[in-house]
Nucleic acid binder design. Structure first.
Lengths: 244, 244, 244, 244
DNA sequence: AATGAATGAGATTTCATTCAT
DNA sequence: AATGAATGAAATCTCATTCAT
């Protein structure tokens, strides 16, 4: 495993890219290893698409929904419009999704899976004490920012527009997982000295999340992201290693 | 001016408290120096209430709207329900607010004014180099958390439910103001050494905001907030004073 | 009594002019001989304005209503807006007019009175066999067109926007009166030979009304009205005198 | 092509009759050559009805709207009532018409098409110098009156209730077309001598329109229409042929 | 006489969802 | 599997009118 500062990393997983909102879906998209292969049934999906054709329909609906959620917001994107833009009938849409929220849930699920992957990968790297803390943190931040920046609008919609499906919200299972994993990571590193690992982990998770959001969506256009990432890393690493 | 660690501070301004969502309006509410005295005219408000009765109507509508926005979310809180809960006719509601968004805007405006006040006060304290940085930061965090915690649901709604009225969003004038003010504050303190004041200020603002949100809304119930605040202060102060 | 071809005529009645839509109401307006002095009580007016002040209020309301009816149409001119533009409270408006329609009725009444005057005057002239038929008809048309052209929008609103208060409509008492009067006039003129005076009178009234409307409102802008009036007169006079 | 004085004429077009306001839609209605086949898309119609069912819905909505516009006037005929009377849901109504005005526009369009047809046909006949002028004019008036009389209320509503969709108004494209066509017709007839064809044409169009309205709607009930039509023809023909 | 806050029925329009074809 | 016409509850907002002050 080789780390490079620009955030690229060689692993067997392949690279996760944006879904290219607005572009046509390539034929290979989602063909293999797609995070979309999961158990959608639990989310309100009605019929597991088994045939090729149906799968394409689901794909095309999600694509259309993502675009409209971004452009109009969740509430103003009507199911009829989604179906229309997807080029399928409203009847077909409701054959695959029990209701409008199920569409959002599917998108959210996919998104979270992807974030999960990015974070877990970075945490795995940070688990290794031989990887310098700063390097690992920088990698984490860089990759997260890159991920979010690839489709900033969707990210924003998913994380802000629909808080009642709480997800990245503090207190959510997501964050619980991340915090636990971070506690574990911290405990593995001899170069980290914190008094209250739980608290520090939460602090870390929260801060990283906020910085990511800011860097991906809010930072002044044209601003170089390397600088603030370096500063953030300095702050976080300084804190975690303060005991030394 | 005396500072105490629990966040109380003696000033001439009086203390800003939550609007007591769900509780009756206290008699002293709005009696003097109400933050609601501002120029509402620009927000989509229709008629400036001249009679006392009208003022009370506006008040009661905002009260009801706040509650419903919290309980049902902005979109599901219909203007009819707001009027009903406020105990006024829908016609009265529309005599004072041009549309539903105007109600939200009024609440938001009021909220931002209050946050502004809290932050500016804390920054004023931090301007004073004789106030230890940690103490000032702790004060800032404590007061912000307290403020948000006083009405956590409303805060959440106002900051998350309606992103299209962007406000606390990075890049908003709000954040711009806070960042500029923070840069100024940092420059006044000889005990602070940062290479890129602009970047550090943004980092500070973003982090403080995220921590506040987390501590106010997300932190595990029953968790003591003092601990994480101390840790956060340690992180921030350590970063700002790293040069020493 | 002297007739001049340009339509002016010397009588004791004074000249009726437009109400000067858009201009301030002069103090002498409506002071004496105003057609507005009539029995408004029958029209839905609530209180006969006896005091100076009240009269001015009625005047100002009618003025505002006329403007708004013209600009927005009857339906879109709300009573509140009328009151606002009139500079009186909505309460005052309802003290003088029982409802919105009463305002329209008052305007209509005034308008009809004025038209009546113009027509009756012209018919009186036509009664005189020594006045050449063509001259009399030309006078009638010219004066009617001038009258309508003085406030074309109001005329249009009053005659078209609210047909349910039928007025100039065929079959209305107005038209009945005009027809009867025309029959009488025709019978007095030895130079007129028609087989069915009733029918011819109706034909005359209808045609004159239509031509007036067309010349006042519809004729191409900048078009000289003298030409079509001459042609119309030729048509009408030719018809009435066909027997000779 | 044979003309008969009662206004009937044998052509391939078939006879256009009223839509039988108030009566059920006959089975042959819309079956062939319906004037409703036109390009409705431009009028504010939302969805072009593709299925047969949809076409019937549109038809039934227009039917209901026509009745209500007649009975209550445009403004008092609410879309809900229209839908109700049509026996369809309000949702269906809005699937085919973007708003209430679009319904009116569709009716108006249909009406104008029909009038157009009647007028153009009569003008075509008048183009033929061998057809006596009086006969042609009588045909024109008779057919127009019959057409309007078949559905007098709708005619009135369409032409008077909604002047802002100006149509028969002088200056409208309609009238422009008719005038131009009349000028052409006059020029083709050697038995017509007018000095200013444009002016005379306008006079003719205006007068015919007014007479039609009067005869169709205003004439005393039970009055024989033949008499006034003859008189009108005498007036018009006398005017146009005055030179001879 | 005048005010203007309050009223609430009712208008237009949207949109998630169903179901017959 | 797919279609799309139909549904109707519900939302936003207007405005003629009343009545306490």
């Amino acid at each position: 495993m080789t780390i490079t500062t620009d955030g690229s990393i060689h692993s067997k997983k392949g690279t996760f890219g944006s879904r290219g909102r607005g572009s046509k879906i390539g034929p290979e998209d989602g063909a293999h290893l797609s995070p979309r292969g999961g158990d959608r049934s639990a989310l309100g999906m009605r019929r597991r698409p088994t045939q090729e054709r149906a799968s394409a329909t689901v794909e095309v609906i999600l694509q259309a929904a993502a675009e409209l959620f971004c452009n109009l917001g969740y509430d103003h994107a009507s199911t009829n419009r989604i179906a229309e833009r997807a080029g399928v009938s409203i009847g077909s849409l409701y054959q695959y999704f029990a209701n409008k929220e199920a569409i959002l849930a599917a998108l959210l699920d996919e998104h979270q899976r992807a974030v999960h992957e990015v974070v877990d990968e970075a945490l795995a790297i940070l688990d290794d004490p031989e990887v310098p803390l700063r390097e690992g943190l920088e990698l984490l931040l860089t990759r997260l920012v890159d991920f979010h920046a690839a489709d900033p609008e969707l990210t924003r919609v998913l994380s802000a527009e629909v808080p009642h499906l709480a997800h990245g919200e503090p207190g959510s299972p997501e964050v619980g997982h991340y915090t636990a994993r971070t506690v574990e990571m911290l405990s593995r590193r001899p170069d980290v000295a914190v008094e209250h690992p739980e608290v520090s982990a939460m602090l870390l998770v929260t801060t990283v999340e906020a910085l990511t959001r800011w860097l991906a969506h809010g930072a002044p256009v044209g601003m170089d992201r390397a600088e603030p990432i370096r500063e953030a890393v300095a702050m976080l690493a300084g804190y975690l290693q303060a005991g030394f």
